[in-house]
Simulated scan of single mutants.
Amino acid sequence: MKVAVVGAGAIGAYVGAALHRAGADVHLIARGPHLAAMRRTGVSVLSPRGDFTARPEATDDPAAVGPVDYVFLGLKANSYATSGPLVHPLLHDKTAVIAAQNGIPWWYFHGLPGPYTGQRIESVDPGGAVTRTLPPERAIGCVVYAATELAAPGVVRHLEGTRFSIGEPDGAVSPRCLDFSAAMVAGGLKCPVEPDLRNDIWIKLLGNISFNPISALTRATMGEIAGHDGTRELVTAMMRETLEVAARLGSRPGISIERRLDGAARVGDHKTSTLQDLERGKPLELDVLLAAVVELAGLTGVPVPTVRAIAAVAGLLAETTARTPAAADPSNPSSASNPSNPSDPSSQDTARSAP
């Protein structure tokens, strides 16, 4: 099995190291000091489950890797439309693209029976740009429940969780999913093949749609948001509205709002990835989290006044931030990527699962 990890930051390098440990032919696509460190000493994983070092190939040139069986996308979803130069040299006729993203994916209605089959979601696939770059038939969905961060170039700190749920858009338990799952499990990770991955997408989105933008707007941690009466009520309203949209689309995630809130409270003093991006002057990944749900609410006729209000103010924050990006701090390994370049193969430097 030949695998390329495009965006080998915290999550991507962790997955690549695990697959390499399992015997897969792994190639990490990255850049800058992180790439130099991985070329020099490999990927060092620091984990409560046991530290290890893997030495997969690492490069900034996908053409030097050539076609692979699987492309694991560790990029932010807002860079998918411009990822063609990184992804296309890696493709052959049967290459699968495993998109490890938060929020609503561009392939959401691909293979989904019902009145919206084939519907394109403009907010996550503007003008079909993502579909042209990453055809949905190549896509394998992936919901990440692992928490990792780059402790230093070439060094991944694994904080918690090892589950990477995957699934076909049409719900099939396909050989390509089973083969990839087996390789992940052999590398020490959990990788269940879900017949309906959309339920997992909505479960994780319940936290992302509420805590991520509110944290950016307030600069508060997840624990602070969950522990404040006003914001806890705001999160509850956003989650209720989101669950109604999911239900109209045929998904009923098996988790309660109180459980999601209690999970966030237990996380405590943690900054969401959106707040971290804001502090680093990076583009905010809000379209797949907020704008997509607003669009789906309009499609299904669900009133989502709270989600719309937060989407409006968070959207303005994203616009003003994009006009005045902060300079990357060369002393901080998590700022090694170029915030002005959405196709930077190291752009997903930090990842943490929602509670």
Rank of each mutant, 00 (worst) to 15 (best):
A4V: 11
G9S: 02
A13Y: 04
V15D: 00
V26T: 05
V26I: 01
H27R: 02
M38T: 03
S44N: 08
S47N: 08
P48Y: 12
R49G: 06
A54M: 01
P62H: 05
V65M: 02
V65L: 01
F72L: 15
G84V: 04
L86V: 01
V87P: 09
L91S: 04
N102C: 06
G111D: 11
G114D: 10
P115I: 05
T117H: 11
T117Y: 06
G118V: 09
G118D: 09
S123Y: 00
G127I: 03
A129T: 08
T131L: 06
R132A: 13
L134Y: 13
E137N: 13
R138D: 00
A151W: 00
P153I: 13
G154D: 05
V155C: 03
L159P: 03
R163I: 11
F164H: 15
R176S: 15
V185I: 13
V185Q: 14
K190D: 15
P192R: 09
P192C: 13
E194K: 13
D196L: 10
R198L: 11
R198F: 07
I203Q: 11
N208A: 07
P213L: 06
S215Y: 02
A216C: 09
L217F: 07
G223H: 13
G227L: 03
H228S: 13
D229L: 05
T231S: 15
M239L: 01
E244F: 03
G254I: 00
S256W: 02
G263A: 15
G263C: 05
A265S: 13
R266D: 11
V267R: 15
H270L: 03
T274N: 04
D277W: 00
L278Q: 10
K282D: 06
L286Y: 02
L286D: 06
L290V: 04
L290Q: 13
T300I: 04
V302F: 04
V302T: 15
V304R: 02
A311K: 04
E319Y: 12
T320S: 01
T324M: 12
P325S: 08
A326C: 09
S331P: 04
S334R: 14
A336N: 10
A336D: 14
P342Q: 03
S343N: 14
S343Q: 12
P345A: 05
S346V: 04
Q348T: 02
D349R: 14
